[in-house]
Every structure is written in structure tokens, then in C-alpha cells.
Simulated scan of single mutants.
Amino acid sequence: MKIEAKLFLYGILFFFPIGLIYGLWSDGEAVGTVSIPLVGGLVGMIGGYFALLARRIDPRPEDDELGEIEQGAGVQGTFSPWSWWPLVVAIAASVGFLALAVGWWLMVPAAALSVVGLVGWLFEYSRGQHAH
């Protein structure tokens, strides 16, 4: 996680000066002057999280400069290849973006569908009391 933390924390060194330069060159244009430093803050939060996470977990093969590809072999995670819940969430996002063009009333079914999709995706592998 150290390389990811550095990647995002170096973004602070880019976005804050660029935001300052943009604000000076654009005579204080409101949207860019505010949003570019905010992006710097966002990448700083992500980089800070990765830095804290890197201190808690053991070093990974990616963190070793002399690491070999074989060191990363094995199971990388649990994935559900036959899950339909990402499709439900994608449809909800599509309806939400459609609400921006058609009308805000479409945001209500989009929000309801997204809640259903996210809860279904979250509890997909639940067993026992919350099984479905």
C-alpha cells in the first residue's frame, strides 16, 4: 500500500499549486479556483487512508522493489461472476442520470432502486438470519 499512498499524496503537490495558478490566471473564476484545490484535498484523504492502511498490514509483494511476479500468485479476492446486483445498481445510476435531463421526479425511483441494488449486493453472500 505504500506505493498507492505515495501516488495519491504526490497529487497534493500537484493540485494545490495548480489551483493557485489557475486562480491567478483566471482572475478568480469561482468554479475552478475552488474545485481544483478540493481535488487536492480529496487525493490527500485517499493518500492518508492508504498510508494508515500500509502501517497496519504486512508488506505486499508490490511494496518490495526486488519482488518477483511469482510472489503475487494465489487467490486475490472473492468475486461473484454470476451476480446480477451490479446490473441493478448500474440501471439505478442510469435512471439517476436520466433524471438530470428529463426531470427531478425520476430521482425518487432511482434512489429506491439504488437502495435495493446496494442492499442486495451487500447481503448477497449472507447466511443465517439475513439470508435471502
Rank of each mutant, 00 (worst) to 15 (best):
V75E: 14
P17T: 01
G72S: 08
V108H: 09
L7H: 15
G32F: 03
I3L: 12
L66C: 07
I57E: 11
A99I: 01
A101I: 02
L66P: 07
G19K: 02
W84L: 05
L53K: 11
G32M: 01
A73I: 07
Y10S: 15
P59A: 00
G77D: 09
Y22L: 01
E65P: 15
A5K: 08
G96P: 12
I91V: 14
D64I: 02
R55D: 06
A92T: 09
A93N: 07
S80M: 06
Y10T: 15
L53H: 11
L100D: 09
R60V: 04
D27N: 10
L106M: 06
I46C: 04
R127K: 07
R56I: 02
G96F: 13
G40D: 10
A93I: 11
I57N: 09
V75S: 11
V43I: 07
E124D: 12
S26G: 05
Y10V: 13
F97V: 02
L13A: 14
L52H: 13
V115C: 00
V89N: 09
A51F: 15
S80Y: 15
L100A: 05
L66T: 14
G120C: 00
L66A: 11
L9H: 08
L100S: 10
P37L: 00
A101T: 12
P86N: 06
A101R: 09
P17G: 03
E68G: 15
G48S: 08
I69G: 04
G48D: 04
S35W: 14
G96T: 06
L42N: 11
L122N: 08
K6F: 14
K6D: 15
L66K: 14
I36S: 04
A5S: 11
T33H: 09
I69S: 07
M107H: 11
F123C: 03
S114P: 10
Y125M: 00
G117F: 00
R56L: 03
I36F: 10
E68N: 14
F15E: 02
F123N: 10
V115F: 01
S35T: 15
L66N: 15
S26D: 03
L52T: 13
A73L: 11
G32V: 01
G41D: 09
L24A: 13
P109E: 00
G40Y: 12
A92Y: 05
L24N: 13
K2P: 04
G67Q: 08
M107W: 12
G67Y: 06
G117S: 02
I57D: 08
Q71L: 02
S35G: 10
F79D: 09
I91H: 14
D58S: 08
Y125G: 05
D63Q: 09
G44C: 02
D27Q: 10
S126N: 10
V116S: 01
W85A: 00
A5H: 07
W121I: 00
L87Y: 06
E62S: 09
L100M: 04
K2R: 15
Y49E: 02
F50K: 09
I18F: 12
F123H: 13
P59W: 00
G23P: 15
A112D: 05
A30Q: 11
W84G: 13
P61Q: 02
Q76P: 12
T78W: 10
M45N: 12
G47Q: 03
L106E: 04
A101H: 13
G44F: 08
G96R: 07
